[in-house]
Every structure is written in C-alpha cells, then in structure tokens.
C-alpha cells in the first residue's frame, strides 16, 4: 500500500555524506553487499515499498546504528542525528502501515530475509559498518521510488 510520510531526506543525506568516506573506509570487504546482494532494492514492487521501507528502517534502528560507535566524536554525532531521524521516520511508517494495512508480499519478504542473511553472514561490527556505508543505496532507492 502507499505511505505518504514526510521525511527530511536532505538532512539525512547531508549527515551521511559528511561521514560516508570515513564509514566506508572501515569496511574492508568491498566485494559483498548487505542491501544489494543478490538483487537490488529496485526490484521491489511498488505495492510492497511501504512495508519493506518500514522493515529496513527497523533493521537500521534495531540492529545497525548501535554497533557503529567510533572513536571519532564528529562521526558519532552524525550517526546520532541519522539514527534519531530514522527513529522518527520509522514511527511514522509504523503508523502508516497500521492505517493502510500495508503487508509485505512474498517477494519482498524474501528480499528482506536475504538482507538479514547477508548481515548475519558477517561479524556484527563489520556487518553494521557495511550496512551504514550502504545508506546511500537505501536513500537513492527511496528517492527514486517515492
């Protein structure tokens, strides 16, 4: 189903852009992807977007950001602003899912399971840093598909 959720993508992207190089430099395994392997997010059907977006935001809030603490105060502050933005948006997406009864179709459920499998295939810190480093993949997909 459709979800019209106001979110300040520009602020999230600005926060991510400020630390992208730093985060991606902490990800030694460049041949693997959490979000894009084996299939890109762009294959998700439009009817499933609301549901899988909510799943992805929950994934980042519950499992990714907490394992991304660094020794760099500036990076930690930017991660905090992204995490708090994700928390705010996740809440709106959750409300929207309930109202519109957005359910994930089989394909996108499979896609999300694959993302979790990719994530769990690595040690948690590497997986979290890789997922954070791939945030622009998620942001690009969201902007293109919304």
């Amino acid at each position: 189903g459709a979800c019209r959720v106001s979110m300040s993508m520009a602020e999230i992207r600005a926060g991510f852009t400020a630390i992208k190089a730093n985060i991606q430099s902490r990800d030694p395994i460049r041949t693997l992807s959490v979000l894009s392997h084996p299939h890109s997010l762009h294959k998700v059907k439009s009817s499933d977007r609301c549901c899988i977006t909510h799943h992805l935001f929950t994934f980042y809030v519950d499992r990714v950001f907490k394992h991304c603490k660094t020794e760099d105060s500036f990076v930690n502050r930017k991660i905090s602003s992204i995490a708090n933005s994700f928390l705010s948006i996740r809440r709106k997406l959750g409300q929207c899912r309930e109202q519109n009864n957005c359910v994930c179709g089989e394909e996108s459920t499979e896609k999300f399971k694959q993302i979790l499998a990719n994530y769990e295939g690595l040690n948690v810190t590497s997986a979290a840093m890789k997922s954070l480093g791939e945030l622009d993949i998620l942001l690009d997909w969201m902007e293109k598909s919304h």
Partner: peptide
C-alpha cells in the same frame, strides 16, 4: 536523543 535513550544505554554525546 531519543535513539540514545532507547537503543544506546542512555548514552550522551559531547559537542
């Protein structure tokens, strides 16, 4: 932020 309270052991970040 709310994230730090709910997911990061109520941690604080210095400015």
């Amino acid at each position: 932020g709310e994230y730090e309270r709910e997911y990061a052991n109520e941690s604080w970040l210095p400015i």
